[in-house]
Computed example of a mutant assay.
Amino acid sequence: MEEVQNEFSLVGIEDKSASENIVKPALSTWQSVWHRLRKNKLAVVSLVFLVLVMLYALISIPLVSQNSANQFDTGTAKYKNLPPKSGLPIPGWDGNMTTPGATESVDVYAKNDVDQNFILGTDNLGRSVAKRVTVGLRISLFIAIVATAIDLLIGVGYGLISGWLGGWVDTVLQRVIEVISAIPNLVVVTLLAMLFGSSMWSIILAIALTSWTGMARQVRNLTLTYKERDFVLAAKTLGESGPKIALKHLVPNMSGTIIVQIMMTIPSAIMFEAVLSAINLGVKAPTASLGTLITDGQNMLQYYPYQILIPSVVLVLVSLAFILLGDGLRDAFDPKMADE
């Protein structure tokens, strides 16, 4: 019998304790989300870009004020409609352009005897486009972020109450959402403009009053799902109150959906503000926003296209970055995207 046993050899793990070792390190929920998000290169690039944009907007507050962006020399016309000039021999960015009525490209700065470089050119009043785009970006981001924050507070609270209480309360609250969703946004904006005037705060209020319904619906649906889970039933058994369960258990579990919804709401708010400015219901001149800059630049599109292209490119890049980051976060928060 011993001779037969000697003919066989142990294959595999000889040390039993080695088979019990965990090969992959244990990751928390947020570490797992970041691990999956890093694999999405577009989302990471968008995140870095948005962080840089936010930092630039904050740093520019003491450096570029609204008044400095609105200032122009009324005594001379030499600063009007100057093309972008970087000081480097870069085609299209060297201060040369074909002025209206001319047949050849000339150095407009030398022609007008301007000894100052405007990196993004000037508008039809001689104001720096770079300063106005900086202020416009700041105001558009402020409008979108504040409106989204109000949307977050109303939508999450409303959805939690509707889903948690259920019954006739849920039915009534959902009918209210349907009524609000049926009202066109433009009607709400027009009424607010008549009551409070066309201002930044009326736009914020209009966006907040009309965009929270999507957040409320998603939170309500998740609340209906989670409130029957074991961890919620256990919290009820231990005597936890409804508000505590909502804040300690429900909101953290639905945080991924909320964050993704926020990333989608911000670019929608930026675009909405631009559309309102285009139809003269947005921020009023001389206050600069990306929407008002695009509206002002469209009148000069034939002769000075840079005046509309620059704010349009900024608007598209910021909105696209938020959308790509939102898509990346949606995949990162999806457990199905985890590594097998």
Rank of each mutant, 00 (worst) to 15 (best):
D331F: 03
S199P: 00
T76R: 01
R132T: 05
L301Q: 05
T213V: 15
K131Y: 11
G326S: 07
R330H: 06
K16N: 02
F72C: 11
V188M: 13
L320H: 00
T99G: 01
F196P: 03
D113V: 04
L173Q: 08
V318K: 02
T265Q: 13
P267D: 07
I90S: 06
R38I: 09
I308P: 01
K244V: 05
S211I: 09
M200D: 02
V45Q: 04
D296I: 00
V189N: 11
Q261D: 13
E3M: 01
N280K: 09
D113A: 12
I258C: 02
G328F: 09
E2H: 03
L165S: 09
R127Y: 10
L209G: 12
V176T: 13
G242E: 08
D113Y: 00
G282I: 02
G256Y: 05
S181I: 13
V156M: 04
N117C: 05
G95E: 07
A216S: 14
L152T: 12
S268A: 15
A149D: 10
I13Y: 14
V23W: 08
T225P: 00
V44F: 09
D73W: 01
A206W: 05
R229P: 00
F118E: 09
I262H: 07
L137Q: 05
I245D: 03
T148N: 09
I139C: 04
V189I: 15
S181P: 01
V313E: 02
P335N: 06
D339I: 07
S46R: 05
D296N: 08
L52E: 10
S255F: 05
L276M: 14
Q261T: 12
K284Q: 14
T99V: 12
V260M: 03
K24H: 08
A182G: 09
L47C: 12
A193R: 10
V187I: 15
E14F: 12
I150M: 15
V45F: 14
G155V: 10
H249D: 01
I180P: 07
V314H: 00
I161Y: 13
G328V: 06
I150D: 07
L50P: 04
N70T: 06
A149I: 15
A147H: 11
T99K: 11
L37D: 08
